[in-house]
Design a protein around this nucleic acid. Structure first.
Length: 869
DNA sequence: GAGCTGGAAGAACTG
DNA sequence: TACAGTTCTTCCAGC
C-alpha cells in the first residue's frame, strides 16, 4: 500500500493555555496501489495548506520526513537545494512508511499500488482491503447504547448522524488527498462483504454485567489472529453502521448546483442515496431500534447545534432546514471505488458565533481523562493537558467559505495511522460544549464534523469530542478484523480538512494528535517517554540523555535494542540510569556504546523504559552515528531547562510511544538518509511538479507523534523494505511513486500515517513553525538537524503560539501572509529556532511565488490528555 | 436528576 | 488443567 505522505505543521495548544511548539510530522496516506480503483489526485493549490499541530508536550522537535527523493528536489536533511526546509513548499507527498519491518513487509506484500493519472490530474486512490480491516456491517461505534452514542436514537437524530459508509472520499480510511473536482473514479466496493448479517454483539442487547458481551474465550485462527465467530449470537449487535441513515435523493442537478463549498455531508448523502440503489443495505445487523430511529428521521438531516445555543443565537444554530438546504449530493457510484471529494457539503452557518471563548473549559483533573464504554455514561470531552480542550486552527486559509473539520480516532500503534477499530470519537453535547458538531459514519468509523469558520479564524475548540471504547470482543469478531484489542489502547485524534481550490480541485489536509493512552492501568503504570534530549550520538556512547515522560520509577531501566528486519534481536543492552536523577517524569540515562564502534553509517536502534515485567514503554528511536561524525546541536529547549537538568539541553523531540519508522524509501540503503550530514532523510520527492507549484500542498504534521522521520524515511532504519508505504510525489502531470506493499487492512486509503514527529522546538521569539525538516530522520531531531540553511525566525509557518495569539496570528495570516505567523506568536517557552525556508527553494518547486503567499496550515493548539478507562 | 469522575470489583484472558 | 498475573468491563459512589 502506499501512503500519501502529507507533511504539515501541527501545533496544539489548549484553549486555556498557550503552547507553542510545533513538531513536524508528515502524514502518510496509504494508497492502495493494488487496487485499480485507486485514483491519484492532486490539485494545484493556489495556496498551500498546511496542517499544523502543536502539542503542549513537545516543545519543539523537528523531524523530517519525507520522502523519496527525487534528486533535485530535496537535499539531504530535507532541505531544498537552497537550504530551505523541504516541507515548506506546498505539496502533497505520498510516502512510504513503516516502523516495524516485520509487519511492514508482511503487510506490504499483499498490495499492488497503482496510481492512475487521470485527466485533470486526477489521482485515484484505492482502498485496498479496506473491507478486510473492518467490516462495515460489524458493530460500529455507532452501536453504542450510550445516550450519546452515534447510533442511539437521540444521537443519531440530534447529531445529524449520517452514515456514509462507503464514501471513499470521506472515509477516514481514505487518506487525505487532493482530488480533482468532480473527478470520479471507480473504486471497488469497499464493503464487499456487504452489510449483511454478520452477527454482532450488541452492546445494548448484551446481557448486562461485565463480560456479558463476550460469549467465551477468544478463539484464534491459525495465524494467531482472532477469528470471528460466525455463529449468530442472540445478541446481535446493532451494526451501527450508518446504513440506516437518512436518505436523501441525490441528483446530478442538485449536485452540480451546489456551490463550490466542500462538505462531507455531501458524501454522506451520496452514500445514503446509494442505499436506495441497493448498493448499501445496512438494514441487517442494525438493531431494530437503531434502524427505526434512523428511518424515522430519514428526511431530516440536521445539524444539531450544541448547547450554548442561547449564546449562539439564531446564527449559531444549524437548523435542519438550513443544513438540509445546503446539502448537495452527487450521485455517484461510490462502490465503484473512486473517491471524490464532495464538492458540496453542507455549509455551516456563516455568521455562526464562535462560542468556545465563552465557555469555561473543563479543567483537566490530572494527567488523565477517561474514555468510556458504551455501558457507561459519557466521560466528557477530550481534555488538553494544560486544561481546557484542544484547539485546532487552519492557518493560511484566505477564503471566506467555511470549511468542515473532520475528527476521528486513529491508531497510535507502530503501524500506519488509520482509524482505530476499538475506539470511536464520541460526540459530546451539553451546556459546556460550545462547538457545533455532528456525527457521520464513514467506513465504519465515526467522524465528527466541526465547522471551521472564517469569522473564527478557522479555529475550533474541540470540546465536543470524547472517546468511546468498544468492547474488544465485539470488534474482534468482525469479519476481516485482524487487530486485537487487548493492550491496543493508544489512540490519536485525527483531524482532516478538505479545501476546495478555485481551480476546482480539493486538497485534504490531515493532522494527528499525540498518542493518547486509553488504558487506565497502562496510563497509571506503564512508563511513557515523551521526549528525549538526543536522537542520535556517536557509537561510542557515554553521553547522558534526558528522557521526559510519565511513570518513571526509581527502579526503571532503559534498554537499548537493535532488531533485525526479521524481528530477532541483534543487540540488546541495558543502559546505565542515573538513579539519583530519576523523577516520575524525568530520567537521565547514559547512552551505551553501540555494539559496533566502526559503523560508517548511522545505525538505527530502539530503546525503551522498563518498569518491570510487562511494563515497558514503547520503543523510542535512537541513532548511533559513526564516531567521527560531528554532532549538530540544536538550541536548548526551555522546556527541558525547566526540568532542572542542567547540562542536558533538551531539544529533543518528543517521542511518543510510537517508535515507528516511517520508511520513505521502500528500498535502498537504510542508512542512506542518514548518511552525509546525518540528514534524517534523503530527499524523497522524486518529482516536484515544476509546472504547477501551487498544486502541491504541503502538509506538515507536527503532532507529537513519536516517530522519527528518519526512521520512517529511511529504509534503513526502520523500515523494512517490504512494508513501506510508497512514497508518491504527485505532480499533475506526473505522479511519481514508489510502492510499498500494502498491508492488510492498514493498507487501505484510510490509513493515515502520521510520521511526524515532533521535532521542532520553536525558539521564543521566532516563529514556531519549522517547516520542514521534512526529511528529517528520527535522529533528525533538533539535535541532529540543526537549523536549516534558511535561517530561523523567518519560517513562514508558526508552529506554536499561545491561544491568545492564535487569532491574531491567524488573522494576520489571512491578511497578509497566511503562512507567516507573528513572531510573538511563538511561546516564550520554546527555545528552538526555526529556520525559514528560502524562497528560492520554493521556486524550485513552484513556478511562481504565489504559493508562499497563500500557504495554509492547520494548527492544533492543544495537547490532549491521556485517557484512561 | 443527569452528567461527569475516580475508583475499584470481578470477569476475561494470557502465559 | 490449574493458577497467578494482567487486562478489560462494568458498576458504584461522590460531586
Amino acid at each position: 500500500m502506499s501512503c500519501l505522505h502529507l507533511k504539515y505543521i501541527f501545533s496544539i495548544f489548549s484553549s486555556s493555555d498557550a503552547y507553542s511548539y510545533t513538531p513536524n510530522v508528515s502524514l502518510s496516506l496509504p494508497l492502495g496501489m493494488g487496487n485499480p480503483c485507486l485514483a491519484t489526485q492532486y490539485h494545484t493549490l493556489q495556496s498551500s495548506p498546511v496542517i499544523s499541530v502543536s502539542s503542549c508536550h513537545q516543545a519543539g522537535y523537528s523531524l523530517q520526513n519525507d520522502s523519496h527523493a527525487a534528486p533535485g528536489y530535496y537535499l539531504p536533511q530535507g532541505l531544498r537545494p537552497n537550504g530551505a526546509p523541504a516541507l515548506e513548499s506546498p505539496r502533497i507527498e505520498i510516502t512510504a512508511y513503516s516502523q516495524f519491518p516485520e509487519e511492514e513487509v508482511e503487510e506490504s506484500s499483499n498490495v499492488d499500488h497503482i496510481i492512475k493519472r487521470g485527466v485533470n490530474s486526477i489521482v485515484t486512490l484505492t482502498l485496498p482491503n479496506a473491507d478486510g480491516y473492518r467490516d462495515p456491517t460489524c458493530l460500529s461505534p455507532a452501536s453504542s447504547i450510550s445516550s450519546r452514542s452515534c447510533n442511539s436514537e437521540a444521537s443519531s437524530y440530534e447529531s445529524g448522524f449520517y452514515n456514509y459508509d462507503n464514501s471513499p472520499q470521506n472515509s477516514p480510511w481514505q487518506s487525505p488527498c487532493v482530488s480533482p473536482k468532480g473527478s470520479s473514479s471507480l473504486l471497488s466496493c469497499p464493503h464487499a462483504g456487504g452489510p449483511a448479517a454478520s452477527p454482532r454483539h450488541s452492546p445494548s442487547t448484551s446481557p448486562g454485567g461485565g463480560g456479558g458481551s463476550s460469549t467465551g474465550k477468544r478463539k484464534y485462527s491459525f495465524n494467531g489472529v482472532p477469528y470471528r465467530q460466525t455463529s449468530c449470537s442472540p445478541n446481535q449487535s446493532p451494526a451501527p453502521s450508518p446504513q440506516g441513515s437518512p436518505r436523501v435523493s441525490v441528483t446530478d442537478d442538485n449536485w452540480l448546483a451546489s456551490t463550490n463549498q466542500y462538505t462531507n455531508s455531501a458524501i454522506v448523502a451520496a452514500i445514503n442515496a446509494l442505499t436506495t440503489d441497493g448498493v448499501v443495505d445496512m438494514g441487517e445487523g442494525i438493531p431494530v431500534k437503531a434502524r427505526k430511529t434512523m428511518l424515522d428521521h430519514t428526511p431530516t438531516m440536521s445539524l444539531k447545534v450544541e448547547p450554548g445555543g442561547e449564546e449562539l443565537g439564531p446564527e449559531g444554530e444549524l437548523c435542519h432546514e438550513d443544513y438540509a438546504s445546503r446539502l448537495a449530493f452527487k450521485k455517484e457510484n461510490y462502490c465503484g471505488g473512486f473517491l471524490d471529494v464532495p464538492q458540496h457539503p453542507y455549509s455551516w452557518s456563516k455568521p455562526k458565533p464562535y462560542l468556545s471563548s465563552r465557555l469555561a473549559a473543563p479543567s483537566c483533573s490530572g494527567p488523565y481523562s477517561r474514555a468510556h464504554y458504551e455501558t457507561e455514561g459519557s466521560r466528557g470531552a477530550v481534555k488538553a493537558l494544560s486544561g481546557g480542550h484542544p484547539v485546532v486552527q487552519l492557518y493560511g486559509y484566505m477564503e471566506s467559505e467555511p470549511l468542515t473539520l473532520q475528527l476521528f480516532i486513529g491508531t497510535a500503534d507502530d503501524r500506519l495511522l488509520r482509524p482505530h477499530a476499538f475506539y470511536q470519537v464520541h460526540r459530546i453535547t451539553g451546556k459546556t460544549v460550545s462547538t457545533a458538531s455532528h456525527e457521520v459514519m464513514q467506513s465504519n468509523t465515526k467522524v465528527l464534523e466541526i465547522p471551521l469558520l472564517p469569522e473564527n479564524n478557522m479555529r475550533a475548540i474541540i470540546d465536543c469530542a470524547g472517546i468511546l471504547k468498544l468492547r474488544n470482543s465485539d470488534i474482534e469478531l468482525r469479519k476481516g478484523e485482524t487487530d486485537i484489542g487487548r493492550k491496543n489502547t493508544r489512540v490519536r485524534m485525527v483531524f482532516r480538512v478538505h479545501i476546495n481550490q478555485s481551480n476546482g480541485r480539493t486538497v485534504s489536509l490531515q493532522a494527528a494528535s499525540n498518542p493518547i493512552e486509553c488504558s487506565q492501568r497502562s496510563a497509571q503504570e506503564l512508563p511513557l517517554v515523551e521526549k528525549q534530549s538526543l536522537d542520535s550520538y556517536p557509537a561510542t556512547g557515554g553521553k547522558k540523555m534526558l528522557l521526559s515522560g510519565l511513570n518513571f520509577l526509581p527502579d526503571s531501566k532503559v534498554v537499548f535494542v537493535e532488531k533485525a528486519q526479521d524481528g530477532h534481536h541483534l543487540w540488546e543492552t541495558e543502559a546505565k540510569v542515573d538513579k539519583d536523577s530519576i523523577k516520575s517524569n524525568t530520567l537521565v540515562v547514559e547512552i551505551p556504546p553501540y555494539r559496533n564502534q566502526r559503523i560508517s553509517n548511522p545505525m538505527q536502534v530502539n530503546f525503551y523504559v522498563c518498569n518491570g515485567k510487562r511494563k515497558r514503554s514503547q520503543y523510542q528511536r535512537f541513532t548511533y552515528l559513526p564516531p567521527n561524525v560531528p554532532i549538530i546541536k540544536t538550541e536548548p529547549n526551555d522546556e527541558y531547562d525547566s526540568l532542572g537538568t542542567p547540562g542536558l539541553p533538551m531539544h529533543s523531540k518528543p517521542y511518543y510511544s510510537q517508535p515507528r519508522l516511517t520508511p520513505i524509501m521502500p528500498v535502498g540503503d537504510p542508512d542512506a538518509c542518514l548518511v552525509g550530514s546525518y540528514t534524517p532523510c534523503p530527499p524523497r520527492h522524486a518529482s516536484m511538479p515544476a509546472s504547477s507549484p501551487s498544486s502541491s500542498p504541503t502538509l506538515h504534521d507536527l503532532s507529537p507523534v513519536t516517530y522519527s522521520k528518519c526512521l520512517s524515511s529511511s529504509p534503513t532504519h526502520a523500515a523494512p523494505p517490504g512494508p513501506m508505504v510508497p512514497t508518491i510525489q504527485e505532480t499533475p502531470g506526473r505522479p511519481n511513486l514508489t510502492h510499498p506493499a500494502s498491508p492488510d487492512h492498514s493498507s487501505s486509503l484510510g490509513m493515515l500515517h502520521s510520521q511526524g514527529s515532533p521535532s521542532h522546538l520553536n525558539s521564543p521569539g521566532t516563529h514556531g513553525y519549522h517547516p520542514i525538516y521534512a526529511n528529517s530522520s528520527p535522529s533528525s531531531s533538533p539535535v541532529s538537524h540543526p537549523s536549516t540553511p534558511g535561517g530561523t525566525a523567518e519560517s513562514p509557518f508558526v508552529q506554536a503560539y499561545s491561544p491568545g495569539q492564535a487569532q491574531a496570528s491567524s488573522a494576520q495570516a489571512r491578511d497578509s501572509s497566511p503562512s507567516l505567523l507573528p513572531e510573538d506568536a511563538s511561546p516564550p517557552s520554546l527555545a528552538i529556532t526555526v529556520k525559514q525556508e528560502p524562497q528560492e527553494l520554493d521556486q524550485m518547486y513552484l513556478d511562481d511565488g504565489e504559493l508562499r503567499e497563500r500557504r495554509m496550515c492547520i494548527i492544533i493548539i492543544s495537547q490532549i490528555c491521556c485517557f484512561t478507562l
